[in-house]
Design a binder for these strands. Structure first.
Lengths: 168, 168
DNA sequence: TCCCTCGGTCTCTTCGTGAAACCCAACAAT
DNA sequence: ATTGTTGGGTTTCACGAAGAGACCGAGGGA
């Protein structure tokens, strides 16, 4: 069978994967953040097969992450530009980069450094924090169904934790 | 050919995808954050085929995101627990959830709400910011090669932006 | 005009995905 | 001790998607 799709899954993670969870897709978005705009920019930078790149760009346009703009002076020649929705992926890309900087490459071995263009200082690390800015970990959090929760989500979030179901 | 692997790519995004970019993998991690530990927890929650789940869990253990702990009272019975490296993915999952809350579901339709367990208040939104906390967008950032940059990365980051290469 | 580049599409092979069947070890009930 | 059930997988197999590479029409520079 083909790959299972997550369209119907009532979960933000699944929805995000549906939009850009395919193999090359997030790297295409990354390249766009680095300034790539044209089909050939992406293709040369990634070494991706053209049919795949074509399909992924189409998918990203369909999901409103890129817009396809005709920039031909006398006919068709296209650029793929990040929309506002695509720009908002900066946080996701930053979270991924910071995670691998710390846990894959290790501090001091970062392949890329991101700075504030004006001040030249490195950007602040992303942190999950409460309203006062205090750092929070997984143990400090509580999840509950929101206004858009499906019955399945409610069931998932209200089940008893394993510790209580089966004490050891 | 089968899927291209990104092991050798000198980029944090690619490395992160290598660790958990496979189709089900991030949803498995999400379920772990929601409290799943046992093989059957993940399987029932996701409806994933057992061979795939088995391979994904193995992959996550290989990458140090989960550890496989024998909890059998008299023989083997396993739990998969997030390591510190796995816990650090909280930021990534939060970024993904916040993006889809805003751009897929829309404000007021969030399927899940995350709160500080102590205060009951919703957690602060992740923001890319400079050292003083000022919000930054893609345009405010500058990327440069870091100490671990490969020649390919340096080439990518130091090329002229398209605007300057080919003014319109 | 020629030629190269851009932005794709088509074909063909290979590989990953997923359903279902199968399997053995651990507990649980009797 | 025997039987049954659940847990945690592995094996088999069919199918669809991924990827390499050939091909192609239109654009634009010389």
């Amino acid at each position: 069978m083909g790959r299972k799709r997550f369209d119907r899954m009532n979960c933000g993670i699944a929805q995000a994967l549906e939009a850009f969870g395919d193999w090359w897709t997030l790297l295409i978005v990354r390249d766009a953040f680095f300034g790539a705009r044209r089909f050939g920019d992406f293709q040369r930078s990634l070494g991706i097969a053209k049919n795949i790149l074509s399909a992924r760009l189409q998918h990203l346009v369909d999901h409103g992450i890129f817009e396809r703009v005709d920039v031909g002076s006398e006919g068709e020649r296209f650029e793929y530009r990040l929309t506002e929705k695509g720009d908002a992926l900066l946080t996701v890309l930053t979270a991924l980069r910071e995670w691998s900087d710390e846990w894959v490459f290790g501090r001091g071995n970062e392949p890329v450094i991101v700075r504030d263009r004006r001040t030249g200082r490195r950007i602040a690390k992303l942190r999950v924090a409460d309203a006062d800015g205090a750092h929070l970990t997984r143990r400090d959090l509580r999840t509950e169904p929101g206004p858009g929760a499906s019955p399945a989500t409610i069931r998932l979030l209200t089940r008893r934790p394993r510790e209580e179901r089966r004490p050891r």
